[in-house]
Design a protein around this nucleic acid. Structure first.
Lengths: 151, 151
DNA sequence: TTAGCTGCAAAAGGTTTGCAAATTA
DNA sequence: TAATTTGCAAACCTTTTGCAGCTAA
């Protein structure tokens, strides 16, 4: 359960927090640990739930505030799904998100997947795309097949 | 103010509503008229505000319910911006949306713009993209230039 | 000591829902 | 008449905020 590399990474992030004039608290440590333990995309609500497993009175607002700071420090990013809550992940987990509207499954693609599109938008419109800040909505292969069968 | 082509289109949509077993009410007529008069992407809130100009006690919930029916009938689509409310538009106004996170401007592109991406997703992952259901987030040319100048 | 964080409760959007009254066909 | 729609108010869900007390440095 104690992974030295993960501990380093955690310490690194907490150090950035200190360097920014912030405090390292047990709630913040727990939020970062939860992000590191997660599969890479979790809602603020679910982070709160996990943290509260060990520290029952950490409130959701603390989680949101912690995520906000970490995002400002470039350590966390969030993705907007169409409906439903935003998903948060560590900034070193860079990927594009596909969201299936039928089964709510999230599929991750390498963040280079939208490079061509980003180039085209820059050339055509001077628009600087943030390819990880929104999910691509549609229907996943399984659900599409199921829908096909159903007629 | 009275455009025969627009009147036809309005009538067409209302007829679909009837054909589906629904009723045509003044509130519904006004919602459709508002959508037709709009620039192509409006929030439920702003539709309600416009409708209420002439009919003060049409409620927002009626607007949402009307949009829902029209969406089911394939006459309306909505786009999720990252933050902020969803935007609704008539289904014949097909376009991809770019949203500038700095100035909230919405830029419309032909809905073919994501055709390559859609093909690639289908080939690589069997994923059926809905290219108009989400906005591409980033920074528009003007805001990017301004940010550049600022340092 | 003191800036910064926290929990709590309340508020702020955006959207949905329950229900009795009104309206359409 | 019978089924559908409406307005209203209340609830919902996610996120933000105000504030007095607590805590890290």
């Amino acid at each position: 359960m104690s992974d030295p590399a993960a501990d380093d990474r955690l310490g690194e992030i907490l150090e950035l927090l200190r360097a920014d004039g912030g405090r390292v608290t047990s709630a913040r440590r727990a939020v970062v640990a939860s992000l590191m333990a997660s599969d890479g995309h979790v809602s603020a609500e679910s982070i709160a739930a996990e943290v509260q497993g060990a520290m029952p009175d950490v409130s959701v607002s603390t989680v949101y505030r912690t995520l906000e700071v970490l995002e400002r420090l470039g350590q966390v990013e969030h993705v907007h799904l169409g409906h439903g809550p935003s998903l948060y992940h560590l900034a070193d987990r860079r990927h594009v998100h596909l969201l299936c509207r039928r089964c709510d499954r999230v599929i991750e693609l390498p963040d280079t997947y939208l490079a061509d599109l980003a180039d085209r938008l820059a050339d055509d419109h001077g628009f600087v795309l943030e390819p990880r800040h929104f999910a691509l909505l549609g229907t996943c292969a399984e659900c599409a097949a199921r829908a096909d069968q159903a007629g």
